[in-house]
């Protein structure tokens, strides 16, 4: 597993995810990274990586929408200028 810190230096996070509980892909996986988004600027996230935790919140067992909401809220909150992703290499 690898810890990646993404700085919120763009208006968008810029990732697309698939997967979640009760699907063929039980943990959310990054399927694309948009240029110019914070994730792309960070340079350490890769398409195909599976996300285990977001800011210390485990995503195991969460439905897709729930996992997406957690990531969206982590990006939206202004309390912190970054998001920590615990990822598993692809």
């Amino acid at each position: 597993a690898v810890l990646v810190r993404v700085l919120k230096n763009s208006n968008t996070l810029g990732i697309a995810i698939e997967g979640g509980g009760s699907t063929r892909q039980p943990l959310p996986r990054i399927v694309s990274i948009q240029k110019g988004g914070s994730a792309h600027n960070c340079g350490q996230l890769r398409t195909g990586q599976v996300i285990l935790e977001v800011d210390g919140i485990p995503l195991q067992g969460r439905e897709h929408k729930d996992a997406a909401r957690i990531i969206a809220e982590a990006f939206k909150t202004k309390e912190k200028g970054h998001i920590d992703f615990l990822g598993k290499d692809y």
Partner: peptide, 16 residues
């Protein structure tokens, strides 16, 4: 177990 996995649906995709 393998058959069960194959019956799981694909996931939707969300842009964040």
């Amino acid at each position: 177990v393998r058959e069960k996995r194959l019956t799981l649906p694909p996931s939707e995709i969300t842009m964040l």
